[in-house]
């Protein structure tokens, strides 16, 4: 099963198996990884599953959609590699993906 490494703001790393088809958000929530709140349950409604995608993986995760861009546009700590993890579906090509979390989601 493909793996994703989640890095908390304090540097703690969590390597987790994420089934293909589940979102990167669900991978964190299902395994109790702190730092991804996902208040809305993955409907791109809340922007509380914000992650920074490791630059080496950006080409494979692709760019955010219009709705996601709007949701991200006001987060105080967004970067070029900001994504909402509910909008990144796991694929075989993303095996080894590394994402890190901002200081807070609210």
């Amino acid at each position: 099963m493909p793996k994703v490494t989640y890095i908390e703001h304090n540097g703690t790393r969590h390597e987790v198996d994420v089934p293909i088809g589940l979102s990167v958000m669900r991978g964190a929530v299902d395994n109790g990884v702190p730092g991804i709140d996902a208040d809305c349950g993955g409907e791109c409604a809340c922007a509380t599953c914000h992650v920074y995608v490791d630059p080496a993986w950006l080409a494979r995760t692709g760019a955010p959609g219009e709705m996601e861009k709007s949701m991200l546009s006001f987060a105080a700590v967004t970067q070029e590699n900001s994504r909402l993890s509910c909008q990144i579906p796991m694929t075989a090509e993303l095996d080894g993906l590394v994402v890190s979390m901002p200081e807070g989601q609210h």
């Binding site: 922007a47 709705m67 709007s70 949701m71 546009s73 006001f74 987060a75 105080a76």
Partner: peptide
């Protein structure tokens, strides 16, 4: 209007 929503939240 997600931009208005997110701005509004702040």
């Amino acid at each position: 209007a997600p931009g208005e929503f997110v701005a509004g939240r702040q």
